[in-house]
């Protein structure tokens, strides 16, 4: 059985079928990439998996559990973390605080414990900080630890968002256009990190990406989406040379 499986998933906004009967399966340990022209429904698909949108029909199964009806705030607890296309960080908080929010699912303290800062809160808090510090070291974010996100360059924010997702301690990481807005060097580094997250931390990655060199460098498997439907699926080369994909990109 597959690790993450989408079975005939659709969503409709008014009369528009943004995602139309999409099925694919991600295996554990893969880097799985979704490509497609703008408006193909890639981000919508992400929002469906992280349950920000409710599917009109179809099923999303993660590790054998049907998560189609799970509330969005419980998705992180299932081991799924994500980043956002246009960066959704907490702008008026520091990098460290952003990463610590990523640790939210690991905190077990109740309101009154927090209110009185009981010893258990302190113990857990130290643990959160240790974990966040590890992620910061991994992504070389230490020098931005106490800087407010609002003042950081775009490229750094992009990395912070990956860091926050890693703090969730995910088994499946959803990356929505990790290289958008990055320059060549930054994209290169991002590719290294994606590979390292996958190989060293053993995290399965599902990503949406436009940069084809990045896609072919890291992806184990690629699907191409257009008008909410799957056009092609296979290795990066196969999909890139698929006539429908070429046509969709060239607009022929």
């Amino acid at each position: 059985m597959s690790y993450l499986a989408l079975q005939n998933v659709s969503i409709q906004f008014g009369g528009l079928k943004a995602v139309d009967g999409v099925s694919f399966a991600v295996e554990k340990g893969q880097i799985f990439t979704i490509i497609g022209p703008n408006g193909a429904g890639k981000t919508t698909l992400f929002n469906l998996i992280s349950r920000l949108y409710a599917a009109s029909s179809g099923k999303i199964v993660f590790k054998g559990e049907d998560i189609t009806q799970v509330p969005a705030q419980q998705i992180a607890a299932r081991g799924i973390a994500r980043t956002f296309q246009n960066i959704e960080l907490f702008d008026n908080a520091s990098t460290l605080q952003n990463l610590l929010v990523g640790r939210h699912r690991h905190s077990n303290t109740r309101f009154f414990e927090d209110l009185f800062f009981l010893p258990r809160v302190r113990r857990e808090e130290v643990e959160h900080r240790r974990a966040a510090e590890e992620v910061m070291e991994f992504l070389r974010l230490q020098r931005y630890r106490d800087s407010l996100i609002g003042g950081l360059p775009y490229g750094v924010r992009k990395v912070v968002e990956v860091g926050r997702a890693l703090c969730v301690g995910p088994e499946l990481l959803l990356l929505d256009e990790p290289s958008s807005g990055l320059n060549v060097d930054e994209t290169d580094r991002m590719a290294d990190w994606i590979l390292e997250i996958n190989r060293r931390l053993g995290i399965t990655i599902l990503m949406v990406e436009h940069d084809m060199s990045l896609v072919s460098r890291v992806s184990d498997r690629v699907v191409a989406l257009n008008y909410g439907r799957i056009m092609a699926e296979g290795s990066a080369q196969e999909v890139q040379s698929h006539p429908d994909v070429v046509a969709a990109y060239l607009g022929a």
Partner: peptide
Amino acid sequence: VALRDSETAARSMG
């Protein structure tokens, strides 16, 4: 703070 700055992201973080 998370809810204040981005409710969407906060929910996705659990």
